[in-house]
């Protein structure tokens, strides 16, 4: 009984941030020392599609950037990681893939800002997408490096031995086997792009207003209800994906 209570308490703790943000997004007027907001309304949520706020537009922009990054990065990193995994210097290549993460994406963006300014990509959606490629693509390569093993090599050998072309090997054997891993990588790359703030701020110079920028904007404006609303929109897709099937979202490639 005590164990069960502890478990439910722990689950409550894990879910508390979501409940708190949702409550705050439905509130208005939260004067000190009230524990809960004085008024409850769905008006904040109607605000999403308000012309002035552009929260809906930000959500669509974030969605477009993340989907635009996740698809090509997943496919490209799937193919490139194969050559890296089978290369004799595999370990060295993978160390290089870790560098953007060790280095901190926002500092990487600071170093690259000059190039983006010269290329006139600064402050543009395309620029932000290119910059996000530099952190998502190495992630995809690291992700798939565990997928390419001796078993996959043997499968490919078998296809070649039986007269299959490289294209057939991908279409008929490798991609069907890797479907789960491809889905997982797609969602994870989507989330990296969806959650990205520092690099987007710097390369987008505040003009590319993704949802993460909106959260920060509302927080600095001390508009906690809209900040909570934007936060809810930000955490909703990953939570829905998780609820549908956790193995496709966060599980690692076996």
């Amino acid at each position: 009984m005590a164990n069960r209570l502890i478990k439910y308490f722990f689950i409550g703790l894990l879910l508390f941030p979501f409940a708190f943000l949702l409550l705050l997004s439905l509130g208005r007027g939260w004067a000190y020392p009230d524990v809960l907001p004085q008024h409850w309304t769905v008006e904040n949520w109607r605000f999403i599609w308000g012309i002035q706020a552009g929260l809906g537009r930000s959500a669509l922009l974030s969605l477009s950037i993340s989907l635009g990054i996740a698809g090509p990065v997943t496919l490209a990193s799937f193919v490139v990681s194969k050559f890296i995994a089978y290369d004799r210097h595999r370990r060295r290549w993978l160390v290089l893939a870790y560098l953007p993460y060790v280095f901190a994406p926002v500092i990487l963006a600071a170093c690259l800002q000059g190039f983006f300014l010269r290329a006139e990509l600064s402050g543009k959606v395309w620029g932000v997408m290119v910059a996000q490629l530099f952190i998502t693509f190495p992630y995809g390569v690291i992700f798939f490096s565990g997928f390419w093993n001796e078993h996959m090599l043997a499968m490919e050998q078998l296809v070649a031995t039986l007269g299959g072309t490289v294209r057939q090997a991908y279409a008929r054997v490798l991609i069907p086997i890797a479907r789960g891993a491809l889905m997982t990588c797609f969602f994870q790359v989507f989330l990296i792009s969806w959650f990205e703030y520092g690099l987007t701020t710097l390369i987008g110079v505040g003009k590319v207003q993704t949802l993460t920028l909106k959260v920060f904007q509302y927080v600095t404006e001390a508009n906690i209800f809209y900040a909570a609303l934007a936060s809810c929109l930000l955490v909703m897709p990953p939570v829905v994906l998780l609820w549908l099937n956790k193995k496709y979202v966060f599980s690692r490639v076996g």
């Binding site: 703030y197 993460t212 956790k246």
Partner: peptide
């Protein structure tokens, strides 16, 4: 797994 779906800014 749920807390992993919360970005740093949130």
């Amino acid at each position: 797994y749920f807390p992993l779906s919360i970005p740093a800014i949130v």
